[in-house]
Design a protein around this nucleic acid. Sequence first.
DNA 1: GTTCCTGCAAATCCTTTGCAAGTTC
DNA 2: GAACTTGCAAAGGATTTGCAGGAAC
Lengths: 156, 156
Amino acid sequence: MTSTPGREEKDVFAAYLTKNHLKRSEQREVILDAFLRSARHLSVDDLLQLVQKRRPDIGRTTVYRTLKLLQAAGLAQELELQGETRFEREYKRQHHDHFICKSCGAIFEFSSPEVERIQDEIADGLGFVIEGHRHHIFGLCRRCAARPPRDGVRGR
Amino acid sequence: MTSTPGREEKDVFAAYLTKNHLKRSEQREVILDAFLRSARHLSVDDLLQLVQKRRPDIGRTTVYRTLKLLQAAGLAQELELQGETRFEREYKRQHHDHFICKSCGAIFEFSSPEVERIQDEIADGLGFVIEGHRHHIFGLCRRCAARPPRDGVRGR
DNA sequence: GTTCCTGCAAATCCTTTGCAAGTTC
DNA sequence: GAACTTGCAAAGGATTTGCAGGAAC
């Protein structure tokens, strides 16, 4: 019966810290909170900006370090999209993959149990044990496909 | 009727250079040749070493620059595998994706028309125009899955 | 009080760029 | 000779690390 949004993740993080003899801090709380409230797929800079709106004194280094912790705690996942590093929430989220629009930078998520199944079959054939996968499709989203291409437009 | 291995690629490269008012050079030939003879999935360092076996005076910068040309000419493709940048041959190769063994670093290729088809269907549903995709599966290869895990062993 | 955190500056790593000298056309 | 290439050193961008001072336990 969690009520506050992100409550569960915050508990998980607290437990992670305790278990590893680490300490809670104002900074870590602000960073986690910003991460949880944020849109998906943030860059380190995106997150830093969000964080600094509330606490301008929090440094980039701390954001990097906290993101590592969040990953270790299973709350965040790193993504390499078109050469850019991004982070998204991971906790209790269904596995999914990404479409990336090369024109406007929009990111769409999708998932396909069928693809997962085929993957498993192929892996079995090779005797390969799957731990994870990344499946990125890039191209043009509906809007950009409809729109006449404008050079050099590459949003985030 | 090409006979020399890589003959075709070399011709393509020569044509690319001519078409773009670029010049041939000993260095570019050595680098392309090393690239074509090499195993798949080389890092810049791998390639540099191969090249320097024959011509120790060729610099890293030139390898970077030549790889850009090879990509532009459609001969090489860049791959981001587990945070490492690698290059593989692209010319007239069937599209394929990769399994990466996290323990020994081995890379296996696979392809699945079925997965491609499902992808297309999903993209259609979103009105998305696919330009390409990257599908990486990581886990343990047959040998490493059978072997007791040894800490810290992470080959290339 | 001890251990852990934080922010800064400095260090790394990978890749690109400026430039003077050498090559190719 | 004009235009392009090369290798070096320096610059860049992203991320990590050393360290002294500050906070949590």
